[in-house]
Write a protein that binds this DNA or RNA. Structure first.
Length: 284
DNA sequence: GCGACAG
DNA sequence: ATCTTGTCGC
């Protein structure tokens, strides 16, 4: 069965944009062990409404660095058109993220982030060009892909080897390379914040069941090593703060969108209902 | 053929 | 992505 023509078109577009991807540190602060000179880190995310796959809230936040305080927030309802297809996430979400970045640069140019953390993958992708690369090339900003689940590509899978790598890093607090069958390191698995809440109850099982790793990969204009160091320095909880704030705020925005119409809805016409009931009774 | 599949 | 409460512990 041939791939849908729409997907063919998407692949051509990715191939075209891929020429612009940069996998190396291009900024001075990236080369500094303490990221001296880095002052603003951005995070982006889309949240969806449960039964509605076309309405979403796109959010962009900018946090100060290293304090990680929110300097800027932009949440906006958008009409999503492209369906979600694993491997083609960028075509669904990137247009709205680019708009948000352009809006920021127009309205608050001084708050332009120096790097963006993106929910999803960069080079860790079927065609080596995930949403983080896509957004990076279109905005010309350094981008880092941070995924919460492993995209199974180039032989990578949630197999016994992968589970063993997770177990080993949870003891050392370190990272492990995501090496594809091709031999290429596509990204790094990492887990810096362990969930020890149930340590007392099941000490033994905790090592096998505690929090899942993050999957970090290069998006644009950043090296993998720098990407991993930066994400680590942004983690208060499992998910790095810029993405976490974008996620929290977009979900909250949607929650308020859903509640607002209920509050202004006029009271039910109780009178007519009672009259109808009375008529029924009188007829009976 | 069946299963897998970032958000 | 989203559906979902309480609960146990520091």
């Amino acid at each position: 069965m041939a791939a849908p023509p729409e997907r063919r078109c998407w692949e051509r577009e990715q191939a075209r944009l891929k020429a612009g991807v940069v996998e190396q540190d291009t900024e001075e602060w990236q080369k500094d062990p303490n990221f001296t000179g880095l002052e603003r880190v951005g995070g982006v995310d889309l949240s969806y409404i449960k039964g509605d796959d076309t309405s979403a809230c796109a959010s962009l936040v900018v946090l100060s660095y290293p304090a990680l305080q929110v300097l800027y927030e932009d949440c906006r309802m958008v009409a999503v058109t492209a369906p979600y297809v694993a491997g083609f996430l960028a075509f669904r979400e990137v247009p709205f993220l680019v708009e948000a970045v352009q809006r920021l640069q127009q309205e608050e140019p001084k708050l332009r982030p120096q790097v963006l953390l993106v929910d999803g993958n960069g080079l860790l992708h079927h065609r080596g060009f995930g949403v983080a690369c896509h957004l990076g090339v279109l905005t010309d900003l350094p981008c880092i892909g941070v995924a919460k689940n492993l995209l199974q590509v180039d032989g990578l899978a949630r197999d016994e080897l992968h589970r063993e790598q997770i177990r080993s890093l949870q003891r050392s607090g370190d990272t492990f390379p995501l090496t594809g069958t091709s031999g290429r390191v596509l990204g790094m698995g990492a887990c810096w914040v362990l969930d020890l809440s149930f340590l007392n109850a099941q000490v033994l099982r905790s090592y096998n069941n505690s929090s899942k790793p993050l999957y970090i990969s290069v998006g644009h204009r950043v090296s993998l090593d720098t990407a991993v160091r930066l994400v680590r320095s942004c983690c208060r909880y499992r998910v790095p703060e810029p993405i976490r704030q974008a996620d929290i705020r977009s979900r909250e925005y949607i929650r308020k969108q859903l509640c607002a119409p209920l509050e202004v809805r006029p009271a039910r016409p109780e009178s007519s209902k009672k009259e109808a009931e009375l008529e029924d009774e009188s007829d009976a």
